[in-house]
Design a protein around this nucleic acid. Structure first.
Length: 544
RNA sequence: GCGCCUGUAGCUCAGUAGGAUAGAGCAACUGCCUUCUAAGCAGUGGGUCGGGGGUUCGAAUCCCUCCAGGCGCGCCA
């Protein structure tokens, strides 16, 4: 597939150097194995009839190695069929474990920062964070598989009013545990976890702050509360199979002077001014709808200031690409951040902000009450325990990030035997099971003889092979759009073809040559299922 | 009021840098386990792609408009 893509790219770029080459799988398999509508897209630019362009493209293709046929269809589609020799050679390479058969590495690996989750350390992760976590991790996996050097990063908002409020809430519970009356802060965090944090602090330090006011011990309580909270958040993330390479603290940006130096930088560039006793950034000069305050008239910095410092630091760290994965409720923030990066002369196309839409939690069709104020909300941990990690991730990654997601706990659980995730995992487990059986018959998975595609002439076998070879194309499309759900859907289709074939034919049979060929097919299927599941961060079980 | 996202089968959703006869899972119904795992397979039914207009050889996809839902519009984070 990769050679086919490259051949088409080569030829199309000869004709139209700046066009983006679009390759797809035809809607009906009778039409061909792959196709391109490129000739029609080029017709307007080149001012030639699409079929003439198509014919020109076909003439330039060196069809013999890769393609068996190339035809013009309809208004100007080019439909191509792979030659048996090419298919056989590709299968052989996958069998040998050659990664280059599955993934085309990027020409120039990039240093990429992907920031996601970044939940405030004021409470446990909830389901919405889970969606961001699953999506972000899958995007990181995609980028890494393509050969990039990726830093998965979590930005900890551990400065400002919210964490102070957490500290005070914990302090109030601490006093309470000591049997001392203390007014609970008005908008304080009332969740049970706050009490747990207080208890841990109590166990650690005892009653030494029995008589203290919050002002006296604020630093201590804030710092410790955040640490305990982050510990728990990391535990949840790890249980969810999500790992960060770097946790960047907002507080440190202040302490290390990054905020001051970022502001100085903007000031020296002439983008700051004072008005009404506050310090403003002229973001409207860079596309934002209005200017934004960096330093309030009371002397405190806004959150925006540290965010500027944070992104300046990312740029200074030398990333070629900065990807932020945000919850959709932050979308209003995009123009001002883009304005910042413009002011910092960072090329516009090197900042990508991907929004992940909100998750509604339901139980049997009814919305689950979520009151953050009262501390009543369902945590990601609870969902993981009740529904399962793989199933939860799969549900997140079976939807476009743009779509609002209704997550029904009962449906996610009830489907647990018919859930698409098990369907895909089951296909993998079946491949493994076939090899366990073959092993009993004295056929080792690692000692398969060369595959001969001539023995795989059944319609179902051809269909499966053609689905398998689509994997590199699906990967590239997922990578280009940073949309892991494309992989998820592909895996379901692949699993479907495999199950169907499995049900009808025997892999291990009386004919040794045929058995060998079919086992090769099973092995390639297993490899690709595993490869795809790896990107999603979902387990590929040996047995179920 | 302004901005972003969404509206596709009874339900949950794919498909949208314009492309071929709009797909899948669930639910419903009918069959298939003495042979590599039935968490599976085979089959049946199910659609004004929210409405209306426009651009185009061609629109679920682009533009305009209206309707519906979600989210956001602070010297909060």
């Amino acid at each position: 597939m990769i050679e086919a893509i490259e051949e088409l790219e080569r030829v199309i770029k000869e004709i139209a150097p700046f066009s983006v080459v679009e390759i797809e799988v035809p809607p009906q398999e009778e039409l061909g194995d792959i196709s391109t509508p490129q000739a029609m897209a080029l017709a307007k630019i080149l001012k030639k009839p699409p079929r003439t362009i198509a014919s020109d493209i076909i003439d330039r293709l060196s069809t013999s190695d890769i393609f068996r046929s190339a035809e013009i269809a309809g208004p100007g589609f080019i439909n191509l069929r792979f030659s048996d020799a090419y298919l056989q050679n590709w299968l052989r390479r996958v069998l040998r474990g050659e990664e280059s058969a599955l993934i085309r590495k990027v020409n120039q690996p990039k240093k990429i920062n992907v920031e996601f989750v970044s939940a405030n350390p004021t409470g446990p992760l909830h389901l919405g964070h889970g969606r961001g976590a699953a999506t972000g991790m899958a995007i990181v996996n995609l980028l890494r598989k393509a050969g990039n050097s990726v830093v998965a990063e979590y930005y900890i908002n551990d400065a400002g009013r919210q964490v102070r409020l957490l500290g005070e809430s914990v302090f109030a519970r601490y006093k309470e545990l000591l049997g001392i009356r203390y007014p609970f802060p008005d908008d304080g965090y009332r969740g049970e976890y706050v009490r747990e944090i207080a208890l841990r602090i109590l166990n650690k330090i005892g009653s030494v702050y029995r008589e203290s006011s919050f002002e006296e011990v604020a630093e201590f309580f804030i710092k410790n509360s955040i640490e305990i909270m982050m510990e728990r958040i990391k535990e949840d993330l790890h249980a969810f199979g999500v790992y960060f390479d770097n946790y960047q603290s907002e507080r440190e940006l202040y302490i290390n002077g990054d905020v001051d130096s970022a502001i100085e930088f903007l000031r020296s560039s002439g983008y700051l001014y004072e008005k009404d006793g506050a310090l403003w950034f002229a973001s409207s000069r860079f596309g934002d709808d209005k200017d934004r305050v960096l330093k309030k008239s009371d002397g405190d910095y806004t959150y925006f200031s540290s965010d500027i410092a944070y992104h300046k630091k990312k740029i200074d760290r030398g990333f070629d690409l900065i990807i932020n994965i945000w919850g959709a409720d932050h979308h209003g923030y995009i123009p001002r951040l883009r304005a910042v990066l413009k002011a910092l002369s960072y090329p516009e196309d090197r900042l990508k902000i991907h929004l992940v839409q909100m998750v509604n939690l339901l139980r049997s069709g009814r919305p689950v009450q979520m009151s953050k104020r009262a501390g009543e909300f369902v945590t990601l941990k609870e969902i993981m325990d009740e529904v399962g990690v793989d199933s939860t991730k799969f549900i997140f990654l079976t939807r476009s990030p743009d779509s609002h997601l209704d997550f029904d706990i009962e449906v996610a659980k009830k489907q647990s035997s018919e859930n698409p995730v098990y369907y895909v995992q089951y296909a993998h487990a079946r491949v493994m099971s076939i090899f366990r059986f073959a092993e009993e018959q004295g056929i080792s998975k690692d000692k398969l003889r060369d595959i001969s595609i001539g023995l795989l002439g059944l319609e179902e076998e051809r269909r499966l092979i053609k689905k398998l070879i689509q994997y590199p194309l699906v990967f590239e499309k997922a990578l280009r759009s940073l949309e892991p759900h494309r992989i998820t859907f592909y895996l379901q289709e692949l699993a479907g073809l495999f199950h169907s074939y499995y049900n009808r034919y025997r892999f291990v049979n009386e004919d040794k040559e045929l058995t060998n060929a079919r086992l090769c097919l099973a092995k390639v299927t297993g490899t690709i299922l595993k490869e795809g599941l790896e990107i999603l961060g979902v387990n590929a079980p040996e047995r179920m």
